[in-house]
Write a protein that binds this DNA or RNA. Sequence first.
DNA 1: TAGATTGTTAATCGATTAACAATC
DNA 2: TAGATTGTTAATCGATTAACAATC
Lengths: 222, 222
Amino acid sequence: MKRNAKVSTAVIRRLPRYYRHLSELQRAGVVRISSSALGKSMGLTASQIRQDLFCFGEFGQQGYGYKVDSLKEEIGEILGIHRGHTIVVLGTGNLGRAIIQNFKFSSNGFQLLAAFDVSSQVVGTRIAGVPVYHARELEQFLAGHRVDVGLLTVPISAAQEMANRLVSAGVRGIWNFTNRELSVPQQDVVVESVHFSDSLLALSYMISQGGDGQPDTQEESE
Amino acid sequence: MKRNAKVSTAVIRRLPRYYRHLSELQRAGVVRISSSALGKSMGLTASQIRQDLFCFGEFGQQGYGYKVDSLKEEIGEILGIHRGHTIVVLGTGNLGRAIIQNFKFSSNGFQLLAAFDVSSQVVGTRIAGVPVYHARELEQFLAGHRVDVGLLTVPISAAQEMANRLVSAGVRGIWNFTNRELSVPQQDVVVESVHFSDSLLALSYMISQGGDGQPDTQEESE
DNA sequence: TAGATTGTTAATCGATTAACAATC
DNA sequence: TAGATTGTTAATCGATTAACAATC
């Protein structure tokens, strides 16, 4: 059973979607689901779902399907939701503040410990209960707390420097919301970027096709 | 020359990255670049870059490479940056407000026309110069203005309904920041989602490996 | 011209899909 | 038991990489 050997990024990217869909099914009171039903609702083939799960083990019952609750739990486990991950936010501008106030860190298994900024307007205050420290205290804080991930919402000009400081202080991942491609040579530190621009430009491309290219067909049958 | 026939999503996702990297090179004063140099800086093979560009035409000069300025312009054109796309924001909570105030819509070829909300606190005001109308006026506004994209930052409970209204009113794309998977049967309307949770969970998975699995090797040579 | 680098076709690799025996 | 559906291997498909003639 040579599982888990090399899980492709395509599979990794689907895992959170499985988790999200299963959570919605659970909320809707669905108890069991087959790979083909789940596939239909997610726009995947049954085969792909079974193949994806096969990377990690056996989670279903032949002739029955998958129990929504336990499959969700298993995938949560695989994603590391119960590992007690911790995170700090760098930069409390509009976006940082919005994420601190809105984003459900705990639903994703993360505990938000602190935020850092340089503005005297916010340093010393709390945002949604989270203490804001001065950025110069970052290393001291990281020395005293196990912090797994640093979330970057600093101005683009400060992004690389803050990334360097986070890596030096030993974080294992950087969640990058700046529009800068970060250079992190250490292979054991993971950078996950959320590039709003890339997303909007991809959308821009997609709506720019069809209008002048293909003929506009109407709704599909199913 | 049967180009542009079917551009894969993998290629589409790389186009904005090319655009971003070329913009940075341009800012750094680089005039020409070869596919191998660009590949090295982006972590792609030269072959892949040439193959990607091949989908759209010929943009380089043999023996010389690509002119940074003109390649950037060409890719911008492909992405639809000069099409005068327009966008409105639905929901001016923390996240919507942050995006309105921070995101450079115009750098991505979009003009932000208006925002909509239901709170009497914000309706009638302006956020960074953008007028905020009541959500009930959405259809009227869309009837009077050509709007290509609706940006969704409404509460998850309102997401599907607002998506339906946008589609009925004729938008061509939805930029979805809610954590809800939207169902949009019309095949000519594109949904592009930014799922913060999916991104963080993928990061969670990646940092959960390695720590206990593989032995931690140090930096790679190049 | 010689050297460099593209455009483009062919080969390889990896991911998705199909098939089916195992079994609930 | 019969029907359904999984786990898992094999076949297919598509994307990436390699190769090289064309040409600046």
